[in-house]
Structure formats: structure tokens, C-alpha cells
């Protein structure tokens, strides 16, 4: 919890000093606007996806298809609204239905067919965008439905409505994993699937559930993302978002090898990533180039967390110390 918050504070300090206008807050029509509010609003989708991703990574897997599931949900909602003329409720249910289906598909492949998570979700990551293209017939669908637009642009208590969605999902997720045994089961499966099975945990079901929930979270994020720009573009919704989500979870201290997970830390991680993204945009770095520095950050964070890298650093540190103080520190036999 400490490190991601420190990084966030440092990044905000940098923005305070060097990015003009980043800390300006305005009250327009009774609602707050400004770069920091943008971070919260745009960050909502990263937060939503990383909540789901935290569970998947905790089981020792990974979901590369989150961005594609966002695109699927966004295009299905827009198609139902505009092309097929359904109402808001039907569109949202259809979108979340397809997102749950996508999550279930991943879950079945990983948990019941024993396909490696990377391969299983890669199939959906690439092929799913093809399906989204078929749904939208290769077109960008624009919509104007008031309720749908409210999802990504509305305000609630002067703050973006998206934050309310994040809050609801977070509370739901927290209640499910920390108030019931589900969280413990997920950590058990991630730590050692065989041992957890012998202990009576239904490892397959738990893994399946993690992918299912991630599908749902990605679906919500997709609705928010398409609502935000009032259109659904199968090619661009959620593009590169899998990187942001994995980065947020890893920065939040949940190890890629599975085991213990931290939902709140992932949220802080997501805010950190979004602040980084917004800072880059504010400094005129294009959205296409932005993944490059992020890729470096994720590798660096993983290096810091890797035991081997820590051991190298420790060895260096202790060697320096013992060289400086040979008489005081008696040399100990290395195990």
C-alpha cells in the first residue's frame, strides 16, 4: 500500500511543479472539472478492469482479453440501441450478458480444459475483436440515448457518475471475497492448486468464477468507455487496456505467480497508471506512443518484485558493507 501511494504522490508532485494547469479545478454547472477529475473519470475503466484482473492474477492466471471484452460490450450495447431499436435496459443487459459469456468462455477453457491462461485469453483477445466487428458490421455506431450517455458522462454528488459504479463494484467484490470464504479459496488456488484441491476446495469452480467476474467488470468498463465518447468503435475501445490493468494489479503488490491479492491496492495502482497516462497526454505524448513508457514501468516494477533481482541487490549491498567494515562485521559462512 505504501509504495504505490508514494509513487502516486511523487507523480502528482511532478505534475504540480511541471505540468501547467494539471491542478486547476473548475465548477461548471455545479459539477467539478479539471485534470484530476479526468484522472478519476478516465481511471474508472482501468479501476473496474483491474478489480477483476486482481482476482484472475490471484488464481495464478492472467486475462489478456479484457480490452476485447470491453469492445464487445460497447458494440453490443450500441447495436441494440441504434440498429435494433431496443431500450436502455435491454442494451445494458445484452452488453453485460455478452461480457459474462466471454468471461465464462475464458473460465471454461482455463479451468475445465486446462489450457494455459495466456493462450486461452489470447484467442479471445484477437478473435473477439473480429466478433465485435461483425456485431457492428465494421461501422462506428454513434448513439444519443440519454441514460446510456449518463453512464460515462453523468455526475453524482458533483463527481463523475463512473466513480459510483466503481464504488458499487468494489463493495460487491470486497463483500464477496472478504466477507465470504471465496477470497480465501482464490488465494489457496493461486498459491497451490493441487494442495487446495486436496484440502477440499473446488479449484476449477473458483478459477472459473474469477474469469467470469473479470468478464463482468470488463463489460461494465466497456459500457463506460463507449458511453464516454457516445459511440462504439470495435477497433479502439479498450485498446492497450490489458497492459494498464496488469500494471495496476502488479503495482498494487499482487504477485503474478498468484496467491495473496489486494483489491484496494489495485485501485490505487489503477489511479497511478491513469495519472501517468493523463500526465503523458497533458505533455503532448500521443496515445499511440504512451504504451512504450508504460511497458518500461511494468518491467521495472516486476524486476523490483522479482526475488532474483532483490537477491542480486542484497548481495551487492552486503558485499559493500562487509568490505567497508571488515573488522567489525565478522564474515559469516554463506548458506
Amino acid at each position: 500500500m505504501f509504495w504505490p501511494l508514494l509513487a502516486l504522490a511523487l507523480l502528482l508532485l511532478f505534475d504540480y511543479l511541471f505540468t501547467p494547469g494539471f491542478f486547476r479545478l473548475e465548477l461548471r454547472g455545479g459539477n467539478l472539472y479539471g485534470s484530476r477529475i479526468d484522472v478519476l473519470n478516465q481511471g474508472a475503466r482501468v479501476m473496474l478492469v483491474s478489480l477483476g484482473m486482481t482476482l484472475v492474477i490471484a488464481t495464478g492466471g492472467v486475462d489478456l482479453s479484457v480490452g476485447t471484452v470491453m469492445a464487445l460490450a460497447g458494440t453490443v450495447a450500441a447495436r441494440l440501441l441504434v440498429v435494433d431499436g431496443y431500450g436502455f435496459i435491454a442494451a445494458v443487459s445484452g452488453a453485460l450478458g455478452i461480457a459474462l459469456l466471454a468471461g465464462a468462455w475464458n473460465g471454461v477453457l482455463v479451468a475445465y480444459f486446462n489450457i494455459q491462461p495466456i493462450i486461452a485469453t489470447l484467442i479471445l483477445m484477437v478473435a473477439g475483436r473480429g466478433v465485435a466487428q461483425l456485431v457492428s458490421d465494421g461501422q462506428i455506431i454513434n448513439f444519443n440515448d440519454a441514460s446510456m450517455v449518463f453512464l460515462g458522462n453523468g455526475h453524482f454528488f458533483r463527481l463523475p457518475f463512473t466513480l459510483t459504479i466503481v464504488l458499487f463494484v468494489f463493495v460487491g467484490m470486497w463483500a464477496l471475497t472478504r466477507q465470504t470464504a471465496v477470497g480465501l479459496f482464490i488465494e489457496a488456488v493461486g498459491d497451490n492448486p493441487v494442495a487446495s484441491r486436496y484440502a477440499g476446495v473446488n479449484a476449477r469452480l473458483v478459477t472459473f468464477l474469477a474469469y467470469l467476474l473479470t468478464g463482468l467488470c470488463s463489460g461494465l468498463a466497456g459500457l463506460v468507455a463507449s458511453s464516454n465518447i457516445k459511440s462504439a468503435d470495435a477497433n479502439h475501445i479498450g485498446l492497450y487496456l490489458e497492459l494498464d490493468a496488469i500494471l495496476a494489479v502488479v503495482v498494487g503488490g499482487t504477485a503474478l505467480t498468484g496467491g495473496r491479492f489486494y483489491l484496494v491496492n489495485s485501485l490505487v495502482g489503477a489511479l497511478l497508471i491513469q495519472t501517468l497516462t493523463t500526465t503523458m497526454y497533458a505533455r503532448n505524448i500521443s496515445a499511440d506512443i504512451a504504451p512504450m513508457p508504460k511497458a518500461l514501468v511494468i518491467i521495472a516494477v516486476c524486476l523490483l518484485q522479482s526475488e532474483k533481482a532483490r537477491r542480486y541487490l542484497n548481495q551487492r549491498f552486503t558485499r559493500h558493507q562487509s568490505a567497508a567494515l571488515p573488522a567489525i562485521t565478522p564474515s559469516r559462512a554463506q548458506p
Partner: peptide, 9 residues
């Protein structure tokens, strides 16, 4: 995956 995004950028 890092390499993929790095090279794309």
C-alpha cells in the same frame, strides 16, 4: 507483452 507494447509505441 512488455516488448509488444514497447515496440508498438
Amino acid at each position: 507483452l512488455g516488448g509488444m507494447f514497447f515496440l508498438r509505441g
